[in-house]
Design a protein around this nucleic acid. Structure first.
Length: 351
DNA sequence: CACCCGTGGTA
DNA sequence: TTACCAAGGGT
């Protein structure tokens, strides 16, 4: 009878994913880029960004000397923008201290911003062929089912247990196809919703399947209702420019360009009238846009106006007049880009 | 440890 | 339309 890892390796060869762009080489830099992009993000989505990012930043040196804004530009639309800023920080650390060579140890990798134990393990496996475990969402699910672990996967004690299991299962041979296969299996066969147990190479030893608990594992914590927040965004144009504001590093869309935001209409009116010379009667109210983040819902109320004056709100608040032709390449979050497309693109045509 | 941090696809 | 999901890490 085949070993756990042997079954996965054999299955992976014919059923796994073997032609993804980051599988055609063992370059630590490009593998690192893929691993960061793949954090909490689907393969399909990453494929739309990966080649484009590497074209702009083909080496870790080229990334290290880039501006934060240029990196965010290439990340624009991918989400979790802190990942991009951590990547830039990591690139600069490595180039400065190691002369563009990646650390080849778990500790060295985990010391870098944005690289945790699982990402470090994946880099060690795929770049260097070293024997290290990973524990991403797919692996957690596969192992929880295989060993019929019914506790919720949120508790650190359960996670530690799974790390221990993942570590023990790491094979001496075929670490790359094994690790890839474990993820492929979780993604395509041992899926959360409707696991295809009849296609699973591990089915005869799977304790969850034996106990008919495959659908209950992993036990999901009750989905909590997402809170709803509300904001007002200003679409202010001046000839062929639009007023944008650089967001603070902390909260959502950190470091990106967005529309100026206001909590209350009254403050917006004052700014428009006193600083931009806008006739308040010319303000248009656009239909609100809803956007869902991972942890709250946002209702975006939109107000549109134009001016011929060109002051800034104040020198310190990071506002900038962005030429409309530069929008496509700017670091702008997805919903804001959507608003621009809906309400501003084609404006020069109609007016 | 609970919470923060995006987005587009899909049922 | 709503809800849920997908290769985590930092604080």
């Amino acid at each position: 009878m085949l070993d756990f890892s042997e079954k996965i390796i054999k299955w992976q060869a014919t059923n796994g994913r073997n032609h993804l762009p980051w599988q055609s080489h063992h370059d630590p830099y490009r593998i690192w880029v893929s691993e960061i992009m793949l954090q909490q993000t689907g393969v399909k989505t990453v494929l739309r960004f990966y080649a484009n990012f590497l074209k702009e930043f083909p080496t870790i040196k080229s990334l290290a000397v880039a501006s934060e804004d240029s990196v965010l530009q290439k990340w624009s639309g991918l989400g979790y923008y802190r990942r991009a800023r951590y990547m830039l920080a990591t690139a600069r650390i490595i180039v400065k201290s190691k002369g563009e060579y990646f650390p080849q140890t778990l500790e060295g990798l985990m010391a870098l911003p944005g690289i945790g134990r699982s990402t470090a393990g994946a880099i060690l496996v795929f770049a260097y062929g070293k024997k290290y475990p990973i524990l991403d969402g797919n692996v957690k699910r596969v192992l929880a089912r295989y060993f019929c672990i019914q506790e919720p996967l949120l508790q650190s004690s359960v996670i530690n247990k799974l790390w221990g299991i993942s570590e023990k299962l790491v094979p001496d041979k075929g670490i790359r196809p094994y690790t890839q296969g474990l993820m492929d299996l979780g993604s395509t066969v041992c899926s959360r919703g409707k696991p295809k147990c009849s296609l699973c190479p591990l089915s005869d030893q799977c304790k969850a399947l034996t106990n008919k608990k495959s659908l209950e594992i992993p036990t999901k914590s009750k989905a909590k209702l997402l809170p709803t927040r509300e904001t007002i965004m200003l679409l202010l144009t001046n000839r062929n420019n639009i007023l944008m504001q650089r967001r603070r590093k902390n909260g959502v869309w950190g470091g990106l360009l967005s529309f100026p935001e206001f909590e209350k209409k009254e403050k917006l009116y004052i700014s428009l009238e006193t600083q931009f010379g806008v006739d308040l009667k010319s303000i248009k109210f656009l239909s609100p846009l809803r956007h869902t983040f991972s942890h709250y819902k946002l209702v975006i109320n939109l107000m549109k106006a134009s001016t011929v004056l060109k002051p800034i709100l104040s020198p310190a608040n990071g506002t900038v007049w962005l030429p409309i032709e530069e929008i496509s390449k700017a670091a702008i979050p997805a919903p804001v880009r959507k608003i621009i497309k809906m309400h501003l693109v084609g404006r020069s045509k109609s007016q």
